[in-house]
């Protein structure tokens, strides 16, 4: 008898899984296409609820290559989200670092942080739009506001989780507070901090899009709304899909940066890095 569930998923080579993935994907798409064609009483309703994948692909072609409408909006949304995420991260990490360094500061901001955590921050959207207008800054502000929390919590947690013995070792070496902070605490917290950046980016997209839905001159939120209002659902799906696609690429890049940055968690990278440092020191084995 075996309890299969707790067996970790076995590693199977990509060459064996990829065909199955493609097959399943193809089946899903075909099923979807069929649903659109034969699953509804009237075609308008069908296109409204499940626009045909072929039409979505055509719409993608149109907005990316033929008409090229999507680029402007895509760039606008990414700009807002990334700016917001950066600002939010800077604020969140700044607060977290101050909170770890000063007990007094920590005490004073605690109630505010609890309040900030519980309040649905995205709800401030209409206020920002009303005050800052339909342009870039309302969206950036909202993105930053929703984004700061992830980096704050992660940085704080990472910096507070100190290895007592390591800290004692640093003290016995006569390290200053500053040295202990950078060489030990910050470096040990790096993994969580980097996870915080990813959280910030994800939520910043949400913030930027909501600001655009409320009211904006451009951006993917605007584009999606427009397509829906015109009842061209295939275009709406195409726009949605481009957000997913580029979001996915962005996250893959962030994952990669994270993977390289926290190289000591990965045996292979460790091996390479070790060789690199040996060479750099001019020592050949």
């Amino acid at each position: 008898m075996s309890y299969s569930t707790t067996d970790q998923t076995k590693h199977i080579s990509i060459f064996r899984t990829l065909p199955v993935h493609l097959l399943i994907f193809a089946c899903l798409i075909i099923l979807w296409e069929m649903t659109n064609l034969y699953g509804f009483e009237d075609q308008i309703q069908a296109d409204m609820i499940a626009p045909r994948p072929t039409n979505i692909v055509l719409a993608m072609l149109d907005i990316f290559i033929i008409d090229q409408t999507v680029w402007k909006h895509l760039i606008s949304t990414f700009k807002k989200a990334l700016l917001g995420a950066s600002i939010g991260t800077a604020i969140g990490m700044g607060l977290a670092i101050s909170a770890t360094l000063s007990v007094t500061f920590r005490k004073y901001i605690k109630p505010w942080i609890i309040l900030m955590e519980a309040t649905p921050r995205i709800a401030v959207g209409p206020i920002f739009v009303a005050l800052l207008g339909f342009g870039l800054w309302a969206a950036v502000a909202l993105a930053a506001l929703v984004a700061f929390f992830g980096p704050f919590v992660n940085t704080f947690q990472g910096l507070m989780e100190i290895d007592e013995e390591a800290e004692e070792m640093f003290r016995s070496l006569g390290a200053s507070k500053f040295q202990t902070f950078w060489k030990l605490r910050f470096a040990s917290a790096m993994e969580l901090i980097s996870a915080g950046w990813k959280l910030a980016t994800a939520s910043a997209f949400g913030g930027a899009l909501v600001a655009e839905f409320i009211q904006a001159s451009e951006g993917m939120g605007v584009l999606i709304s427009q397509y829906v209002i015109m009842i061209t659902m295939d275009y709406a799906f195409a726009a949605l899909l481009s957000v997913t696609l580029f979001g996915f690429i962005l996250f893959k890049i962030m994952d990669y940066v994270d993977y390289r940055l926290i190289f000591w968690k990965n045996d292979l990278l460790l091996l390479r890095e070790s060789e690199k440092r040996r060479k750099k020191a001019g020592i050949v084995q």
């Binding site: 290895d163 013995e165 390591a166 004692e168 070792m169 016995s172 060489k183 030990l184 470096a187 790096m190 190289f263 000591w264």
Partner: peptide, 12 residues
Amino acid sequence: GMMFQKAVLLDW
């Protein structure tokens, strides 16, 4: 100088 039960080395 001190040494502990754990090596407390910096992984990076």
